[in-house]
Amino acid sequence: MGVSTLRVNLSEADIRALIKGDTDEDRALACYRLCRRIDTVTLTDEERAYAEQILQIVVTGAAERVRRALAVTLKASPNLPPEIAAKLARDIESIAVPLLESSPVLNDEDLVEILESVEPARQYAIARRETLSETVTTALCNFAVDGAIIEALHNGGAEFNDVGMTRALDRFPTARALQEAMVERPILPVLVSEKLAARLTGELFDRLVEKHAMPPQMAIDLATNTRERAGIDLIAQAGLQADMKRYVQQLHLNGRLTPSFVLRALCQGEVRLVEYAFAELAGIPHNKAWLLVHDGGTMGLRAIFERANMPPSLYPAFRAAIEVLHETEFDGTADDRIRFRKRMIERVLTRFQSIPDEDLNYLLEKLDYVREEAEEKRVAVG
């Protein structure tokens, strides 16, 4: 980069001030102006090489104030040479932290190496980066303090795997905030869900169950368990499952795919679960079960109902629920599911009075819940 290229924002005197300025303030200002020019102008290879020579001088021998001006100005710039970024990331904390938080030219290898031997402030800085690969988060889980790991868990741009999360849980087995941060992740590896389920109690356990799919057999075991904390709703868990066919098969193998269970699922609006349940019980493919369940007339549902060996006394309740499903118009709003469940349960309760007491109590409880949920949404909007 020649002086002529920099004439708009940086004179030859500025370059001299950067290298041999009388005060740190003069040199810091000259450094800032050079860095701004580097960050905003498309450079030729020759200009870039010249700029890098100047920056190398700054990094090697300039005062702290000058180095900080460089780090802050180019902390998010893709034009900062990677080797200079790596040096600044190992500088004193006030200079390193901005780079560790923001620099796109620091690679995973740099970040992992730094994590292995730095103080918590730099670990927190890395945890706050816009994106974090599984390689980096695993290093965080292996070497960082629990607070930095929690910071990364709350970072929506951070990717985690079961290896890293499991390591963090093993290192900090009693850190409630760490467990809570994992539960709040949008996606949780199955192995981590299992590990957390074995440790959590109370409200946090409930949130884990409500938000993340348990492995089918584990969900069934927890629901069967008489421990107070294992109040797991297998119907709610069904809505979280990616492989519904396998989930339904496990329910069947464990004797949980009962007529009452299928009716409850239908009233809760878990229609996909009901379709797979009929397919499993009737021994037919899901696509055929779908056609029979959603037959516009009465013959299809009755045919699969009988083939699945469902009790005839429950047929009117299933018929009423399917009618509600087909009559309901969805407008694409967040209230669709709430309105659908409320109407479904009310119709079944109104038209079918001989529901077993256990199912009746379950449906009444769910009706109260959806009413409360609808009221909360109404108050929030109002």
Rank of each mutant, 00 (worst) to 15 (best):
D162I: 03
Q56W: 07
R371S: 12
E151I: 08
F261I: 12
P285S: 07
I15Y: 02
A89S: 02
L273C: 11
A158D: 05
R36G: 07
T258F: 07
L314K: 09
I355G: 09
V190N: 08
N309E: 13
K288R: 14
P82E: 03
Y315P: 04
R185M: 14
A236C: 00
A213V: 01
I92L: 07
V248E: 05
A139S: 08
A308V: 05
M214K: 10
L191F: 13
S313E: 12
T166I: 15
L257I: 04
H212F: 12
I235Q: 07
M1G: 03
H212A: 13
A230S: 13
P120V: 02
Y315I: 01
A127V: 01
E47C: 06
E119A: 12
V274R: 02
R307W: 10
L273R: 07
A175L: 00
S354I: 10
A213R: 09
E327F: 03
G269R: 07
E83Y: 00
L6S: 02
D368V: 05
G21K: 02
R67F: 02
K377M: 13
V136R: 04
L349G: 01
L273E: 09
R90C: 03
E203R: 14
A177E: 14
L314H: 10
L74Q: 00
R16W: 06
K195E: 08
R272K: 12
A63V: 04
T226I: 13
Q179L: 02
R36F: 06
E280T: 13
P285Q: 08
L188Y: 06
G147L: 03
D162H: 14
D22E: 15
N225W: 05
L10P: 03
D108I: 04
R341K: 14
T328L: 03
I95S: 04
I38K: 03
Q217L: 13
V271T: 15
L222P: 05
L281E: 06
E12G: 10
P311I: 07
R176L: 15
T166D: 12
G2Q: 03
A230N: 15
P311S: 09
Q56P: 00
Y315D: 06
D295K: 07
R65N: 06
R129T: 04
V379T: 09
G21A: 06
N155H: 10
